[in-house]
Design a binder for these strands. Structure first.
Lengths: 134, 134
DNA sequence: ACGTATTTGTACGTATGTATC
DNA sequence: AGATACATACGTACAAATACG
């Protein structure tokens, strides 16, 4: 099913929507390989940049992971562990920078949870791996 | 100062690094307009795609905001309000999808904090606007 | 108020490099 | 070695939103 060229929604967003919906519907699932960029180009009848923009978006949504020479796979949602802040501990959340992601070997689209203790020490956690409790 | 073509670090990452460093050093500051894409192309001696990829990265790092016809500006870091989860409340963190961002009119690179209460009700917050306390 | 210039957005094409299979 | 697949980086053209004189 090709994209709708008359839609107000941009072609690359339509493709991202389709893949996102396929994951939500179970047509694609964690660990499953996406079609290659070339296959997606053919399937949707678009150029390469459009496909790549869609995949880039989905990477920053933490929905997929892409590796050179391999392709894109649906990410497995991380296990979430409970975290209860102790008295005096505070936590803030922000996106990572690319150098941070490179050094820590984190996927794109994984926010950072910074826990600060009263003694000034900090702990960095992948924010999507915790369930905060009151 | 043009980019280093012999570096292992890709040109578009070098440009993102430079802008990130300029913000950290105070050469650029919240509210300040970045040079236009064309100016950045000339400054670094690169094509447009490279500049746009760098800016795209910085948007997803929540460092800048870009508007068509206007340009890119350094984002003002949000005010952070303390949030203390009550007993029975839990909170999880994840990146937003593009349709969510569109509907809620959030910037790219702003993670979502989902607070769930015992009665099943949920509250959505911009995760970078809170300081969680224990 | 209008037209023009500026600026970003989309979309396509090509070439080359590099990692993986 | 060869095929596959993604990454970088250049180019072009046109559209759309904004800013400006």
């Amino acid at each position: 099913m090709p994209v709708n060229r008359n839609s107000d929604r941009y072609v690359w967003l339509q493709i991202a929507d389709k893949i996102r919906d396929d994951v939500a519907a179970g047509v694609l699932w964690p660990g499953k390989n996406l079609p290659s960029e070339a296959q997606l180009q053919g399937e949707f009848g678009v150029g390469r940049e459009v496909v790549r923009q869609a995949l880039c978006l989905l990477r920053f949504e933490a929905l997929i992971r892409t590796a050179r020479g391999v392709g894109s796979v649906v990410r497995t949602p991380p296990e979430k562990k409970p975290l209860k802040l102790k008295r005096g501990e505070t936590a803030t959340i922000r996106m990572t920078t690319q150098p941070e992601r490179r050094d820590m070997e984190w996927d794109e689209g994984v926010p950072m949870l910074v826990v600060t203790r009263t003694d000034g020490s900090v702990e960095i956690l992948q924010a999507d791996t915790v369930v905060l409790t009151g």
